[in-house]
Design a protein around this nucleic acid. Structure first.
Length: 473
RNA sequence: GGCGCUAUCGUCUAACGGUUAGGACGGAGCCCUCUCAAGGCUUAAAUAGGGGUUCGAUUCCCCUUAGCGCUACCA
């Protein structure tokens, strides 16, 4: 039974790379009918914020993939501490009474010096106990085997065989002097306790894995399988960061730009993973069925955004593909919601509205296009574009449109076919090219020169409004 | 500095030693057409550099270069 976890820390909003990590975990778990654990890694009390936590849920809820179990590390600190204390007791960890390096420059960079503090390691148990009892602050460090260095090795599901000499691993901290566990301790203790079988996370943790393996071994626990994912980076090759790149890296940016969750998920999956058969647009079940570590890359992928456009063009294209292919009943509520947040509302009954959405979606890319480009279908106060005005200002056009309005009002039938027949007949009678009248109609009905077939537009605008709009030209 | 990871069109990627190095986005052009999309067709665009191994390297090995990660009492 597979158990995987997504473990964000609430120290910034949910960013695009984290979202992809979550998605890959989810896909893998669903594929093998396992359990998805969401765990909030909130051990850094100074940097945790409620806003970050909200942002994580905001993003995750929008993705709507869900999870099976939920935990917060801050509620499990005693269990983490117990592991550190056990290791101390067994002599696999030691107290370091040296004060924390306050800034980067203070950190030892000399030959071999960065690995550990020899004095602290050499401290006798009695002396260590005495100083601790006297109330002197200390940090508990893992005692990395150093006298007889050994190779710490594992096979990463993505990066293959990995190995590092324990001589190159520093005595990392387990428990801070304030009693709060570090990330390494909390993460491993929880992974053990939650019986995590697969750790799927960013490649930035690849080097940390050696430390974690040492911890798993020391605790006498089973090592989970490891799968590291290539990082998502900015066009200039730098790491995605809030400070440097702003909200473009936030998941909610895509939501707020009118993306379908599926479009976004699909796009993210194609960053660092490939189904290898040239498929691009895929449904969630196709992704679930196809996903595997063998298709995951080892090199970082660039999210192609710019200051002018925060959205990767390929993401936009993919979203457009999904926008025109998702089941219409899935799309209708989303469009309704989008219209409502723009102060608009569906026009006509459910079936009519669905027909309109279905007709106009084929040239839209995001949900935001419905209230903007599609405004004329849901409101009477739509703007008339200059190009549309030109179509209306063709000599004789207004009279023809008025006449057309009259005939449509007279005709009991109102379908694409009847409208087309009527319009073409009128054009023929007056010796005008049908195209002129068609284009003028679209301009009058939508204020735009672009859009669906004009006859489809007539039907989507609806008879009443068609007559109104043609007459007021 | 140490350790680790990575390197194919501008971007996402395919090619598990033998291909005219393929697809997609974006760009350019054409077709279709009542407009605009969509769709179809065409086109420009890549194996970081240098050594090996091999009959033959994008592919395997080494070096260089570049990028990234870890090297915190951050995660």
């Amino acid at each position: 039974m597979i158990r995987a976890r997504f473990a964000p820390s609430p120290t910034g909003y949910l960013h695009i790379g984290s979202a992809r990590t979550f998605i890959f975990n989810w896909l893998y778990v669903r594929k093998y009918k396992g359990t998805m654990v969401l765990r909030i890694d909130d051990t850094d009390v100074d940097r945790n914020t409620q806003a970050s936590l909200d942002s994580i849920f905001d993003g995750l809820n929008w993705l709507a993939l869900g999870w099976d179990e939920f935990y917060r590390q801050s509620e499990r600190l005693d269990m983490h501490r117990k592991l550190a204390l056990d290791l101390l007791e067994k002599g696999m960890a030691y107290r370091d009474f040296a004060p924390a390096a306050s800034d980067l420059e203070d950190r030892p960079h000399g030959e071999g010096q960065w690995l550990f503090n020899p004095e602290a390691r050499a401290l006798s148990k009695a002396e260590s106990d005495r100083r601790a009892a006297a109330g002197e602050p200390f940090v508990i460090r893992f005692l990395v085997p150093r006298d007889s260095p050994r190779e710490v090795a594992f096979t990463d599901e993505v990066y293959g065989p990995q190995s590092k000499s324990s001589a190159d691993i520093e005595d990392f901290a387990l428990l801070r002097s304030n009693g709060i566990p570090t990330y390494h301790l909390a993460s491993c203790a929880d992974d053990i306790d939650l019986r995590i079988t697969h750790i799927i996370r960013g490649q930035d943790h690849l080097s940390n894995t050696f430390k974690h393996l040492l911890l798993f071994d020391a605790a006498g626990a089973h090592r989970p399988r490891m799968a590291h994912l290539p990082l998502l980076i900015a066009p200039d090759g730098s790491k995605l960061s809030k400070r440097k790149h702003g909200p473009v890296v936030s998941v909610t940016t895509y939501r707020d730009h009118g993306f379908l969750a599926l479009g976004y998920i699909n796009f993210l999956c194609l960053l660092g993973w490939s189904p290898k058969d040239n498929r691009e647009q895929m449904t969630l079940s196709e992704l679930t069925a196809t996903f595997g570590f063998d298709g995951v890359h080892r090199s970082n992928a660039v999210v192609n955004f710019s200051e002018a456009d925060p959205i990767d063009p390929k993401a936009l294209w993919l979203n457009a593909q999904h926008l025109r292919t998702v089941p219409i009943e899935t799309l209708v509520p989303l469009v309704t919601q989008t219209l409502e947040s723009s102060g608009l509302a569906p026009y006509g009954d459910g079936a009519f509205f669905a027909h309109v959405v279905d007709t106009i979606r084929s040239r839209f890319s995001t949900l935001l296009d419905f209230p903007s480009k599609g405004r004329a279908y849901f409101a009477d106060d739509y703007p008339i574009e200059p190009a549309a005005l030109e179509k209306l200002n063709v000599p004789g056009a207004p009279e023809l449109l008025h006449e057309l309005a009259g005939r449509i009002a007279q005709n009991p039938e109102f379908t694409e076919a009847t409208v087309e027949a009527g319009l073409r007949a009128l054009a023929a009678e007056r010796g005008v090219k049908a195209g002129v009248l068609i284009n003028a109609s679209r301009a009058a009905l939508t204020g735009q020169t672009v859009g669906p077939s004009a006859f489809a537009v007539f039907v989507c605008v609806g008879r009443e409004r068609v007559v109104q709009r043609l007459k007021r030209v």
